[in-house]
Design a protein around this nucleic acid. Structure first.
Lengths: 141, 141
DNA sequence: TTGCGTGCAAAGGTTTTGCATGGCA
DNA sequence: TGCCATGCAAAACCTTTGCACGCAA
């Protein structure tokens, strides 16, 4: 179905290496492009977008189109397949911190929404956006 | 602060009337534009965007940039100040459908995470990714 | 009459696509 | 050698902005 990569190329390797070093960080295609340009390893925008699309399809990278800007953000999340570990993520919109949440109540909600609304939440891909404790203190201070 | 409207115009009235009839539905600027065109009441894109921006600023309309498409969605929410009733979103990764969820349990979770983990979830920006009921049936069929 | 609101067109930015070339297997 | 991957450029989009005109007050 999905056009799996057949050939292994320098560009693909460098992009995945790069993304891994930026795990948990939101990146725009333009940022990636700039970073590569700075390293003297320019990569075409088209190539970046094409790879990101594939990685998103694979689930290795998450795409977000939330936010004020008009550009999508991409985030490396790896290929951990521990489907048994129900781990939710909270992303602080103020400082960008990504918090991992193991919470029984959330597992309960997951079941509730499944039963009541028929929607099967994928915790691995779901992110709660909001403000973390630290930032709230700063804001109130 | 915000440039309040001084003049009342036909376009503005018709746009708000229209939006109210579509309360709770996600609309793109293009959809609005098309709907008006069909009614024979063509309205310029610029005007639509300008009004939507103002309405978002006022809080009457919410803007979402969730989803596979590159276009923003707008939703009329009126001026209800009942901050307790918040709306979460479920995005089906299979068919791309966006589902609205008004769910007390979720509001409970919101409070729970606030109390237990110190994280203030912003429901407006939070999306549950997963699979909707229809797609699950299709997949199992 | 004043000056905001509107519509058109153009600009600005992001993402996708077509096509020839180069590189991997 | 056969194809896929790449890069460039152009196209396709979405959204914003500039400007002249029309309309509300």
């Amino acid at each position: 179905m999905t056009g799996r990569a057949r050939y292994r190329t320098k560009q693909k390797d460098e992009l995945t290496d790069y993304l891994q070093t930026k795990a948990g960080i939101h990146l725009t295609a333009a940022q990636i492009h700039d970073d590569f340009r700075e390293k003297g390893l320019a990569m075409g925008m088209a190539t970046i977008y094409r790879h990101l699309d594939k990685l998103v399809e694979e689930g290795t990278v998450r795409k977000y189109t939330i936010g004020a800007t008009n550009s999508a953000c991409y985030e490396y999340v790896g290929d951990r397949e521990e489907s048994t570990v129900d781990c939710f993520h909270c992303k602080c919109e103020s400082c960008g911190k990504l918090i991992h949440l193991h919470c029984d109540e959330l597992v309960g909600i997951q079941k509730h929404i499944d039963a009541t609304h028929g929607f099967a939440i994928d915790p691995m891909r779901t992110v709660f956006y909001g403000t973390c404790a630290d930032c709230r203190l700063k804001i109130h201070a």
